[in-house]
């Protein structure tokens, strides 16, 4: 009753949540065997920058558009084409509508 069966697989969330709760309790106990203290007011809490000086916070925060450089770099050709297509022109929007309608007409008419 609590699980879904798709004909090719199944999923029961309640048992999974039970496993998570028990594992969480176990690992929490394991974790509390370790030390929880640290010297809060010393040099320990400064970020590790391999000896480089720490600049003001605005410059130290890695901004959103710098993320996923590797992904964007390796798909550069694809993105050039894609961004050119998203031109922002309203007449382009209607152009795409007409193109899809034409393709659909051909499909329905011929097949």
């Amino acid at each position: 009753m609590f699980s879904i069966d798709t004909g090719s697989g199944f999923w029961n969330p309640i048992l999974w949540v039970l496993v998570i709760i028990i594992a969480f309790l176990m690992m929490y106990i394991l974790r509390s065997l370790g030390r929880k203290d640290y010297r809060k007011t010393t040099e320990q809490i400064k970020p590790f920058l391999s000896g480089n000086p720490e600049l003001e916070k605005d410059k130290m925060h890695v901004r959103g558009s710098n993320l996923y450089w590797g992904f964007r770099e390796s798909l550069k050709g694809f993105y050039n084409v894609l961004l050119k297509l998203h031109s922002g022109n309203t007449s382009d929007y209607i152009l795409w509508f007409v193109v899809i309608m034409a393709i659909f007409f051909i499909i329905i008419g011929v097949i």
Partner: peptide
């Protein structure tokens, strides 16, 4: 049929519309 599906598809956000 074509008109209905395409027009409602555009309003529903089907690429490339």
């Amino acid at each position: 049929f074509v008109l209905l599906i395409t027009a409602l598809g555009m309003k529903a956000g089907l690429v490339p519309m």
